[in-house]
Design a protein around this nucleic acid. Structure first.
Length: 518
RNA sequence: GGCUGGGUAGCUCAGCUGGUUAGAGCGCGGCACUCAUAAUGCCGAGGUCGGCAGUUCAAGUCUGCCUCCAGCUACCA
């Protein structure tokens, strides 16, 4: 009896051979905002992240360091856990594919697929480059002047064959297409959906799901020579974390199917094609939605290890501030598009929007309250038309922001909130409470009350994006922590006049560029 | 090559089923205000809406062609 007010969102499991970078932070940030928003909106949320720890490359890295793979992954997996703290991510669970629960889960899924006749033993063959440790497709190969085939890297290739289990992906083409058709929101953004459907329409080949060339992984039940291949292993984490193979009770019954798998565009296919095929073949429900976001460039340049321009999220947070970075990443670019990270743009957002628009709004209002209303929530009289327009805009935020959040349109959600912030600044100027102070103090209090109430709504709405600073802003309005969820929005739970307020302090300082030069 | 999406003010982008003077933010110029984090507000600056042709009383908004850009075109996690 799963309630409809539940929400299960996942990040991909991150490959431990990588060092955490801006991309990881970005993906998880998007999920974090969704998870926080849904919690504030009264949902029972499960927010999952984790690490993918199997495979040949991990095995090799461990061997090179002369330690066993488990010790190696224990160590590097921690880097990803640390990022959660750095970015203030509110994950409920962190899964590692080397955990026992996962091994049980993957093997159970395998058996289901085998019993359903979806897996068979065949042989995998292809052009293999020993030097690259990779297989290449016929079309990728280059024929050199002597007529020999080589890998794109120039490495020599040889035709190799090894026994392998296959998943009958080819038989799922029509069912997948029907599934996409029946669930038009399954793949987002729309452009990605086109790519996936055209890919599937082009025909599917069976998928090799085991290897015998390495050991670091989960063995195929009943055939230990075979290790399950990466994607079957990795994708299954999403159901492992909700207790699979137990499906009738517990978290699986509550949370599955997942509401959203957030992924980078590079791994969309695995999530939008293989994963629903695996699940449907095993008689399980596919997830509700997969969202493929874009990549960041750094000052206009592609990010790559070889260019040495990888962005370290920890460094960013130290330099610019946590919530500033969180805000920028989701504000700057329409979610789903690629975006460019630049210092100038970040500072522009920090100063123009956080410090000037929002921070200054809060500061100018609260300091007037502090100085002219005995440091307490002002009294208010009858609201004028202008007051009601202002309050109406604040009250209307939840519905419009929620709509954007449900579409993962983070930048539009933020833009919607910013319209109210700009309107608030305009309202301050139009009402000129500093004049009312002399002419009509009661009216001044009403104006300041309307503003304080508007700021309350703004801050509550922004909590999922900037949890720490909005906490401070709400503290300054003396709103108790248990009154910060969305059910307390609206006039029913409006600020109570006379409530004592702390002395206001700016929450978004302007960022002043250090002198460059000399 | 094929498929998909896109080329709108200096920059980043909105513009649903075609209809009065094409919009926002930033940047720029001017004015106002002084509560506030040298913050805020208001006004303005005229962009052949990639190009050509067509449909229509009427086209960024539909059709065709051309051009430029991006993504996808499977076993790399």
């Amino acid at each position: 009896m799963a309630t409809s007010k539940r929400y299960y969102v996942t990040t991909p499991i991150y490959y431990v051979n990588d060092v955490p970078h801006i991309g990881h932070a970005y993906t998880t940030l998007a999920c974090d905002v969704l998870a926080r928003f849904k919690r504030l909106d009264g949902f029972d949320v499960k927010f999952l992240s984790g690490t993918d720890e199997h495979g040949q490359k991990v095995e090799k890295s461990a061997t090179e360091k002369d330690i066993d793979p488990q010790t190696f992954t224990d160590s590097v997996s921690q880097n990803f856990r640390d990022l959660l703290g750095t970015m203030n991510f509110s994950t409920d669970d962190f899964i590692r594919t080397t955990e026992e629960r996962h091994k049980i889960s993957v093997q159970a899924l395998w058996k289901r697929l085998l019993d359903a006749g979806e897996i068979y033993l065949g042989s995998y063959s292809g052009w293999y480059a020993v030097r690259d440790e990779a297989f290449y497709g016929e079309g990728e190969l280059i024929t050199d002047k002597d007529g020999n085939k080589t890998a794109p890297s120039g490495a020599a290739v040889e035709w190799v064959e090894e026994p392998s289990y296959f998943f009958k992906l080819s038989s799922w083409q029509d069912k997948l297409l029907k599934f996409y058709d029946d669930n038009p929101d399954f793949i987002a953004p729309k452009s990605r959906r086109n790519e996936v459907t055209s890919f599937v329409s082009g025909g599917l080949m069976d998928l090799s799901v085991s290897r015998t060339t390495f050991k670091w992984g989960i063995p195929v039940p009943g055939d230990d020579e075979h290790i399950m291949y990466v994607w079957l292993d990795a994708l299954t984490n999403y159901i492992t974390a909700v207790g699979f193979p137990e499906t009738e009770t517990g978290e699986y019954a509550t949370y599955w199917p997942a509401d959203l798998h957030m992924v980078g565009k590079d791994i969309l296919r695995f999530h939008a094609v293989y994963w629903p095929a695996f699940l449907m073949a095993a008689g399980l429900e596919p997830p509700k939605r997969v969202f493929a976001h874009g990549w960041w460039t750094n000052e206009g340049q592609k990010i790559s290890k070889s260019l040495g321009n990888v962005i370290d999220p920890i460094e960013l947070v130290e330099t610019y501030g946590l919530d500033q970075v969180r805000y920028f990443l989701l504000r700057e670019v329409p979610f789903g598009n690629d975006g460019d990270f630049s210092r100038k743009a970040l500072i522009g957002r920090m100063n123009g929007e956080l410090a000037n628009d929002l921070g200054n709004l809060s500061q100018r209002v609260l300091s007037m309250v502090n100085k002219n209303c005995e440091g307490a929530v002002p009294r208010h009289g009858e609201f004028s038309d202008a007051d009601n327009v202002m309050l109406g805009a604040a009250h209307g935020l939840l519905n419009s922001v929620r709509e954007h959040i449900d579409a993962q349109s983070f930048n539009e959600a933020i833009e919607t909130i910013w319209l109210v912030i700009r309107a608030s600044n305009a309202y301050v100027d139009a009402q000129a409470p500093w004049k009312l102070k002399k002419e009509d103090p009661a009216r001044m209090e009403t104006v300041l009350y309307v503003l304080a109430e508007t700021i309350r709504h703004i801050a509550v709405m922004l909590q999922s994006f900037m949890p720490q600073t909005m906490e401070r802003m709400l503290d300054q309005l003396a709103i108790s922590p248990e009154h910060r969820s969305f059910e307390f929005l609206g006039s029913e739970h409006a600020l109570v006049s006379g409530t004592e307020l702390p002395k206001p302090e700016g929450v978004f300082p302007r960022f002043v560029e250090e002198e460059e030069g000399a």
